Amino acid sequence: MALKSTIYKAELQIADMDRHYYADHALTIACHPSETNDRMMVRIAAFALFASERLEFCKGLSDTDEPDLWRKDYTDAIETWIEVGQPDERRIAKASGRSEEVIVIAYGGRTSEIWWQGVRGKVERLRNVTVWSLADGVAAALGKLTERSMRLQCTVQDGAAWIGNGNDEPVAVEWTVLKAPEKV
Results as ranks from 00 to 15, higher is better:
Arg39Val: 03
Val156Cys: 11
Thr111Leu: 15
Gly137Leu: 03
Glu66Lys: 00
Asp88Ser: 04
Arg91Thr: 12
Asp168Gly: 10
Thr80Gln: 11
Glu66Gly: 01
Arg91Gly: 07
His20Gly: 07
Ser34Arg: 14
Lys179Trp: 07
His32Met: 02
Val84Trp: 00
Glu11Leu: 08
Asp65Val: 05
Cys154Ser: 14
Ile103Cys: 06
Thr111Arg: 14
Arg120Gln: 13
Pro170Tyr: 12
Asp63Ala: 07
Ser52Glu: 01
Pro87Gln: 05
Val104Met: 02
Leu69Asn: 04
Ala135Trp: 00
Val129Cys: 02
Arg98Ala: 13
Trp115Leu: 09
Asp65Ser: 15
Ala93Gln: 06
Asp88Thr: 05
Ile103His: 02
Trp175Val: 07
Gly109Pro: 09
Val184Thr: 14
Arg54Phe: 12
Ile163Val: 09
Ser96Asn: 06
Asp65Phe: 05
Trp81Arg: 01
Trp70Val: 06
Pro67Cys: 05
Ala45Gly: 03
Glu100Ser: 14
Val104Ala: 02
Arg71Gly: 04
Leu61Ala: 12
Leu3Arg: 13
Gly60Ile: 04
Thr64Tyr: 13
Tyr107Thr: 09
Ile82Glu: 00
Ala135Tyr: 02
Arg54Val: 04
Asn128Arg: 13
Ala140Trp: 00
Asp65Ala: 15
Val102Phe: 03
Arg110Ser: 14
Glu113Phe: 08
His32Gly: 00
Thr64Asn: 08
Ser112Gln: 01
Leu55Pro: 02
Glu100Thr: 11
Glu53Asp: 13
Ala51Asp: 00
Leu178Cys: 07
Asn37Ala: 11
Gly118Phe: 12
Gly108His: 02
Asp158Gly: 09
Ile114Cys: 04
Ala135Asn: 04
Cys154Asp: 02
Thr80Arg: 14
Leu12Ser: 03
Phe50Gly: 05
Glu79Met: 13
Gln117Phe: 10
Ala45Gln: 01
Val173Ala: 08
Pro67His: 03
Asp38Asn: 14
Arg110Met: 12
Val123Asn: 01
Trp175Glu: 04
His25Ser: 10
Ala95Pro: 01
Glu169Pro: 08
Ala172Tyr: 15
Ser96Met: 08
Arg148Leu: 14
Cys154Pro: 03
Val184Pro: 13
Cys154Trp: 01
Ser34Val: 07
Thr146Cys: 08
Gly137Ile: 00
Ala139Gly: 05
Ala180Asn: 08
Arg120Asn: 11
Arg39Met: 04
Val104Phe: 03
Ile44Phe: 06
Met40Gln: 02
Cys154Met: 15
Glu66Ser: 10
His25Ile: 12
Trp115Phe: 12
Asp136Ala: 10
Glu66Phe: 02
Val119Leu: 03
